[in-house]
């Protein structure tokens, strides 16, 4: 596409670098900004700059944070006896969204994959170890993707943490809630059968 203005072209190119945005959407956004008051664009640029300059990762759990210690780690009401290990920041958001978890998190920053050149030392594992060494920690819950790399990371962590007196758990895997059996893929259904659970009588639905 050819643009009559070099300035427009620059802005389009910059926006088109973002995920999910192609040159056409970028042009639409840029033309929209041109139509608006200049203050609006300034506010947008200011918000982005400030966000990028001041955002940091939590010293404790490596989650994204405005402050040195993130709001979850700083929250006094949260259960400090359990740490949930996740691959990335989006996993924290997804689990928070469920409203079912009140413990703390630990963001690894990736999964172990020798093919990609990612080894244990590239992930936040040492800091996890020192956290687990704290006496108040009783349980480490691994919430990693059920892929080969996710499982490798989980087995590796289990070995590293085996010397600590904590309970190691992993999220349940199987048929999705509200899903119908006939539509579940064979692998998932197979795993659900291998990892079947005892049926509990009379305890109701809300025993966590």
């Amino acid at each position: 596409m050819s643009y009559s203005s070099k300035l427009i072209e620059q802005a389009v190119m910059a926006l088109a670098n973002l995920p999910g945005i192609g040159p056409k959407t970028a042009l639409r956004l840029v033309l929209h900004l041109v139509k608006q008051q200049p203050e609006q664009t300034e506010a947008l640029a200011q918000a982005l700059l400030q966000m990028r300059r001041q955002i940091r990762s939590c010293r404790i759990c490596h989650n994204i944070s405005d402050t040195e210690v993130c709001s979850i780690c700083a929250d006094k009401r949260r259960d400090t006896s359990i740490i949930c290990v996740v691959e990335g920041i989006r996993d924290v958001m997804a689990i928070e969204e469920t409203g079912q978890y009140r413990g703390l998190y630990h963001v690894l920053g990736g999964l172990i994959s020798p093919i990609e050149g990612i080894g244990p030392s590239d992930l936040h594992i040492d800091s996890l170890e020192s956290r687990v060494a704290q006496p108040e920690v009783e349980e480490v819950l691994m919430a990693l993707s059920p892929t080969i790399e996710g499982e490798t990371t989980q087995h590796y962590l289990a070995r590293r943490l085996s010397s600590f007196s904590v309970r190691l758990t992993t999220i349940a895997r199987g048929v999705s809630f509200g899903g119908e059996l006939e539509y579940a893929d064979e692998l998932t259904l197979g795993r659900s059968i291998v990892g079947r659970l005892p049926l509990q009588w009379g305890e109701g639905q809300n025993n966590t």
């Binding site: 172990i112 080894g119 244990p120 499982e151 490798t152 590796y156 289990a158 070995r159 590293r160």
Partner: peptide, 12 residues
């Protein structure tokens, strides 16, 4: 070498 990772993959 850190052999823990090798053990983890072997297990899988």
């Amino acid at each position: 070498p850190d052999l823990e990772l090798l053990h983890a993959i072997d297990y899988q």
